[in-house]
């Protein structure tokens, strides 16, 4: 027992070199950054407005970093969108029920605008969870 401890003691005192420490530090840094970097990304405040046609993305913009504007999307005929004060809405639609227009502005990731006749969905992808007060609209 005593012998073993001494042997290990001798062993480690003799073998730790500068190179070992460098290797150790590098690996620790890589490991630490692998854990920290995703959190850092999650902390950046971006709110992406995404327009989907039949489930496929046709438009994306960061609502935190865009000027007020009205626009159309080439893939979607007969619909006009508006961004104002970091919120997005359907300004005009030639669909028959106008549910999408009546939904008005949305700004948080738990809100969506749906146009059934045109198979269009607008959703917000939020990297920060702070504004989200619920998981789903029912």
């Amino acid at each position: 027992m005593k012998k073993a401890v001494i042997a290990l003691d001798n062993n480690s005192r003799r073998k730790i070199t500068k190179r070992d420490i460098i290797v150790f530090v590098i690996i620790i840094v890589i490991a630490a950054s692998a854990m920290i970097i995703p959190r850092f990304y999650a902390d950046s405040t971006s709110r992406q407005a995404v327009i989907l046609l039949d489930g496929k993305e046709v438009y994306r913009t960061d609502l935190n970093n865009v000027n007020d504007t009205t626009f159309t999307v080439p893939e979607i005929e007969g619909m006009e969108f508006e961004i104002r004060d970091g919120k997005i809405r359907v300004l005009h639609s030639d669909c028959h029920d106008k549910i999408c227009v009546n939904t008005g502005f949305i700004s948080s990731s738990s809100e969506t605008i749906v146009c059934l006749p045109k198979h269009v969905v607008i959703k917000i992808e939020n990297n920060t969870n702070s504004n989200v007060s619920f998981d789903v609209m029912v």
Binding site: N102, T103, G104, E111, I113, F134, D135, M137, V138
Partner: peptide
């Protein structure tokens, strides 16, 4: 789960 407002809007 947020219950939608029947008066419309988001």
């Amino acid at each position: 789960a947020a219950v939608r407002n029947p008066d419309g809007g988001s």
